[in-house]
């Protein structure tokens, strides 16, 4: 008997607490598969956010550190500078990274910290019950924008990857999606490139993963993936924005 597909070694056996169809578990798995493939399980330290993934230490079978809301890049900076030989990554949602944590992520990228950020963008605050996030789309209905996000009062959604790609310290910037099997494979390749960028000491690396929140979007898991494809990708185009510190057009 041979195994075609099984749970990666860098995850514990604990079942995910995430809602049915939530793509957090899927992205956890991709990160764990990359850690397995690079054979860095014993040498990797993760920094977890405040948000739905606040208990990620229960799932990753590696060393993890919790950070205050939005401050994961600052905590990861400290860890990496004390242990430059470790592979250090943060795992953050859009509420954590693009709202309260915007200063930390911008400056970590500007300093070119040798850390990797996995940024989950599902255009909403998930854990707190579906409030409008900085990444919510115009017209998107959330509990704090019941008539749809209005640019006049709430401004425009932030394209975090494009913003960070302008900074010289950011060596690898990519936006991927997990709405179908092909894109899941691409997402994993980008996550691996981001980790490799850090291991090769090239600078800061980030992968923005377009994700779903079926419960707070009020849709079935399958409809959520369709909504992501139809509504998020036109505003948040997929592809690599920077590779090895150079801007690229690879979309």
């Amino acid at each position: 008997m041979s195994i075609i597909f099984e749970r990666p070694r860098s995850l514990t056996d604990k079942p995910f607490h995430y809602c049915p169809g939530c793509t957090h578990g899927l992205v956890h798995r991709l990160v764990a598969e990359v850690i397995d493939e690079l054979d860095i399980q014993a040498n990797t330290i993760g920094v977890e956010p405040v948000g739905c993934a606040v208990s990620a230490h229960d799932y990753f079978d590696i060393d993890m550190q919790e950070a205050a809301h939005g401050r994961a890049p600052a905590v990861a900076t400290g860890i990496k500078r004390v242990w430059p030989d470790k592979v250090v990554f943060t795992y953050q949602g859009d509420g954590d990274l693009a709202s309260i944590g915007m200063a930390e992520i911008v400056h970590a990228a500007a300093r070119g910290e040798r850390i990797t950020t996995i940024f989950i963008n599902n255009a909403i605050f998930g854990m707190t019950g579906g409030q409008m996030a900085p990444t919510s789309l115009l017209g998107q209905v959330t509990t704090t924008s019941p008539h749809g996000r209005d640019a006049g009062s709430a401004g425009y959604p932030i394209r975090v990857s494009e913003l960070l790609a302008t900074l010289q310290g950011a060596a690898y910037v990519a936006r991927v999606s997990v709405h179908d099997v092909k894109n899941i494979a691409r997402a994993k390749r980008s996550i691996k490139k981001a980790f490799t960028t850090q291991i090769e000491d090239k600078g800061f690396s980030i992968v923005e993963v377009l994700s779903t929140c079926p419960i707070n979007w009020g849709m079935t898991p399958a409809d959520s993936l369709k909504w992501l494809q139809d509504n998020m990708i036109p505003y948040y185009p997929l592809g690599e924005l920077k590779v090895d510190g150079e801007g690229v057009i690879n979309r």
Binding site: I4, F5, F16, L26
Partner: peptide, 20 residues
């Protein structure tokens, strides 16, 4: 054995084996 089901499963509830 394409494993599409396993690759999109958010809960890793599927394992695919090839049995000889």
């Amino acid at each position: 054995g394409c494993a599409f089901c396993a690759r999109i499963c958010p809960d890793i509830a599927i394992r695919i084996e090839k049995v000889s």
